[in-house]
Nucleic acid binder design. Structure first.
Lengths: 236, 236
DNA sequence: TAGTGGTCTAGACCACTCT
DNA sequence: GAGTGGTCTAGACCACTAC
C-alpha cells in the first residue's frame, strides 16, 4: 500500500466502482459526496480521480461528471477497414456526425503529401461515436482531382470505401504517425471534454500505387478509448 | 485567449520557456518562484505545468523539478532495428542499464505466445536512455529453447541482433499492441518519475517463419518521449 | 433554480534533493 | 541544513447542467 492518501483513495475507488458499476449506471456520484464519504477534500479526491482517468478506468464529460469508461476499441490504423465495420465487429454501436464540409487549402496536408502550399483540398470534419460516447474527431483532406464530387455525394459512409468503389483508387502506400497529446480547446469542445484532456493524435498520408497523393487525415482520439493493434506477417 | 487563468499561464510559460531555454539549461525555476512571478498560488501554477506536461513540452523528474522535454524520438515498432541504431541515426545518444536477468514463468507472456502457464522464460529487464534521460523500461521474455545461453552471454547489445546472428532466428511474424497508461509505481520509480505519470505501453509477440513463439516484450515509455511512425508499402 | 464541476486562494507539513 | 517538490486542508466563487 502506497503512503500518499490519494493513491490509497484510487484503490478504494477502484473497489467502489467495481462494486457499484451497475447501480450507478456508469456515472459516479458527485465529487462532494465522494469527498465526504472518504473524509477528504475535493482537491485530494480529484487527484485520485485524475489518476484513474490516466489509467483509462474513468473519464469526464465536461461539467457533467465522471463516468466509468467502457472497454477500449481495438483499432488497426494500418488497415483500411471502415470505422462502422470494425466497431460493429466488436459488438459496439458506431455513429458519425459530420461537422464540416468545405474546400480549402491546408498547409500540413500539402506538406505531407508533397503538394504546393496553396493546394486546395476537400475537407471533411467529423465526430465519431462508439455506443453514444464521442471518442474521436477527425479531419480528412482529399486531393480534389482524385474525388471531384466528393462533398456533394458524401453522407457518412466509409471514405475509403468510396474512394475505392466510386473512383477506383488503390490505396497502396501510407505513412502513419502517432503521438500522445493534450486535446486542443477546439478538439476538446467537439468531444465534450475538458480542455487539456489526454488524447492520441494519429495522422495518415495515403498514396496510390503510382505514388500519387490521395488523402491526408488527422484523428484526435480520447486516450482511453482505443487499443492500437497491428499484426504483421512475413515482414523484414 | 481562454478565460481560465491557468490556461493563460500555459501561454506565458510557453513563451518564457522558449525565451530562457538556454539560460536555464533545460531546468525550470522552482515552483514557488514561478508562482510568485505570476502572482498566483502553487496549485494553479502546477495546473498550468501539468497542462504543458500533457502536451509533452515539459516533464518532471521526481522531486527534482521540471525540465524542458527534448524532441520526441521517432520509433517504428514494426521494424526490428536495434534501439542503439535508430537512436544514433537520429543524432541522439543511447544508453542501456540492465536491471534484472533471471529465468522464471510469466503468465501473460505464456498466454500471448500460446504456451503453457508454467512455461519458464529468460527474462531481461532493462532501462533505456536517450541523451541521459531515462525514457523507457522494458521486460523481454524469451523462450529458453530458442536461445539457451542467452542470460550468460547477454550484455546490452541488440537482442534481436543476437537472436538473428547467434541462433539464426527469422523474426517473421509479430503482433503489436499499444495502449496509453498511467505508469505503475514500479515502472515510475525505475524511470525516476512520479507515480501515475502518463506512459505508453507497447507489447510485442514475436514468432518465427514456422509460427514458433520466440519472444514477448513489454515496453513502458514516457508518453512524451516518442513519436510512433509506421510506413507501409503495397499493403492491402 | 439547485446542484455540479471547474477554478482558485492561502496557507501547511513532510520527505527528499542538493550542496 | 536549506530549499524543493509532493501532498493536503478548508474554504470560496462562477458557469454550466439538469430538472
Amino acid at each position: 500500500m502506497p503512503d500518499a492518501y490519494y493513491l490509497q483513495l484510487t484503490e478504494q475507488l477502484r473497489y467502489l466502482i467495481d462494486e457499484h458499476a451497475m447501480q450507478w449506471a456508469g456515472k459516479l456520484p458527485a465529487e462532494r459526496a465522494l469527498a465526504e464519504r472518504f473524509a477528504t477534500t475535493r482537491v485530494t479526491l480529484r487527484q485520485a480521480l485524475a489518476q484513474l482517468e490516466g489509467e483509462g478506468l474513468i473519464h469526464r464529460s465536461n461539467r457533467r461528471g465522471w463516468f466509468i469508461s467502457p472497454a477500449r476499441l481495438v483499432y488497426d490504423p494500418t488497415r483500411d477497414a471502415g470505422f462502422n465495420d470494425y466497431v460493429r465487429a466488436q459488438g459496439r454501436q458506431p455513429r458519425t456526425a459530420v461537422l464540416k464540409l468545405e474546400t480549402c487549402p491546408h498547409l500540413s496536408a500539402a506538406r505531407v503529401l508533397g503538394l504546393p502550399d496553396d493546394q486546395p483540398f476537400h475537407h471533411i470534419r467529423r465526430r465519431r461515436y462508439v455506443d453514444d460516447r464521442a471518442v474521436l474527431v477527425e479531419s480528412l483532406w482529399v486531393v480534389p482531382e482524385r474525388a471531384p464530387e466528393l462533398l456533394e455525394m458524401y453522407t457518412d459512409q466509409s471514405l475509403w470505401g468510396l474512394l475505392r468503389g466510386r473512383w477506383g483508387h488503390h490505396l497502396a502506400n501510407r505513412s502513419i504517425r502517432m503521438v500522445s497529446e493534450a486535446l486542443s480547446p477546439v478538439d476538446a469542445e467537439e468531444l465534450f471534454v475538458a480542455p487539456g484532456t489526454a488524447g492520441l493524435n494519429i495522422c495518415r498520408a495515403i498514396f496510390d500505387d503510382q505514388q500519387r497523393p490521395i488523402e491526408f487525415d488527422e484523428e484526435h482520439w480520447l486516450h482511453d478509448s482505443l487499443c492500437i493493434s497491428v499484426d504483421l506477417a512475413g515482414q523484414q
